[in-house]
């Protein structure tokens, strides 16, 4: 995905290395390979590669990762602005 870089400096991803137990799940699940393991702790190598999918935080047994997950989809975000977060429908015939 090196050809595809999106806006830098926007992701909400954080990693608390003190809380990390070194299980390596974040490295396994990240679809952009932005984590790596060093000294039995996870490290973020490429913060701007994050697309905030939330897979790492979901699978972190130590709650060491924080991110506001969501879908990077303009038509979905427009719906949340118009109808509110709970009514906005991603899916059906409209998008993924």
């Amino acid at each position: 995905m090196e050809n595809f870089r999106y806006l830098p400096g926007v992701t909400t991803l954080t990693l608390n290395r003190k809380a990390c137990v070194g299980c390596g799940m974040c490295e396994v699940v990240c679809p952009h390979g932005i984590f790596s393991m060093h000294d039995n702790k996870a490290r973020i190598d490429d913060l701007d590669g994050c697309m905030e999918c939330g897979a790492c935080a979901k699978n972190c047994p130590a709650d060491a990762i924080g991110v506001t997950p969501g879908v990077g989809c303009a038509s979905y975000i427009i719906q949340t602005w118009i109808k509110g977060k709970n009514v906005a429908a991603c899916g059906s015939e409209k998008c993924c």
Binding site: M1, F4, Y6, L7, V10, T11, T12, P31, H32, G49, C50, M51, E52, T68, P69, G70, V71, G72, C73, A74, S75, Y76, I77, I78, C90, C95, C96
Partner: peptide, 20 residues
């Protein structure tokens, strides 16, 4: 083109909202 963000596997919601 902005609406195509939803079909890509690399756009973050924070980024999409910023550009919108």
């Amino acid at each position: 083109a902005m609406n195509f963000t939803g079909s890509t596997p690399f756009t973050s919601p924070s980024g999409v909202e910023k550009e919108m």
